[in-house]
Simulated scan of single mutants.
Amino acid sequence: MTRYSRSGTDGPAGESDGTDPALEDALGALADERRRDLLRSLLERDGEGPVGVGELAEEIADESDAEDVRRSLRHAHLPRLDGAGIVAYDAREGEVRLAGDQPAVEDFLEAAEGSRN
């Protein structure tokens, strides 16, 4: 019987497929359009400091309800981006800021836009 790791990045138990788990986490976190919208908003602020989750939700809500967007940011999107090391999310204060390699995030967002056209 073949056993697979829980991470999905390894093949049969003990055999690595050569992928970097941190890279896989980051790419998975950046795959969602709402998360990319959130990151664009943070990048536009260019290091102005932490931003309130409610303020971000209103910026990226489009025609959606800002309260629903805020809820999804707090419970799904921000924890995922924080776990990947892309943002620093303080759930207690309800604030978020960019973390990690900002130029790499900008490059990924640019590449994602190019693939949509």
Rank of each mutant, 00 (worst) to 15 (best):
G54N: 07
G11K: 11
A112V: 03
R97G: 01
E113Q: 15
L56Q: 14
D107A: 15
D20G: 05
S41G: 03
L56N: 04
V96D: 00
D17K: 03
R40G: 10
G85P: 08
V51F: 01
Y4V: 13
P50W: 00
R80K: 15
G83A: 12
L73S: 04
G100M: 09
G47M: 06
D46C: 02
R71V: 07
E44C: 01
P79G: 12
R71Y: 13
A22T: 12
L56C: 07
E24L: 14
A26Q: 15
L109Y: 03
T19S: 14
I60M: 09
S72T: 14
R34N: 01
R45C: 04
L30A: 05
D10T: 14
G94E: 05
D90F: 03
S115V: 04
R45G: 03
R35D: 03
G8A: 14
S64Y: 11
R35A: 08
L81S: 07
A61C: 08
E110N: 09
L23P: 11
S115K: 07
R92M: 06
L56T: 05
R40I: 11
L78C: 06
R45I: 02
L38F: 07
E67H: 01
A91K: 14
S7C: 15
D37R: 15
L27E: 03
L73D: 08
H77K: 02
R97L: 03
R40V: 10
V87D: 01
Y89V: 08
P12F: 01
T9C: 11
G18L: 13
R36T: 12
R45V: 06
S41D: 13
D65R: 06
F108L: 07
L98S: 09
E58R: 15
D46R: 14
E15V: 13
A29C: 12
V87P: 09
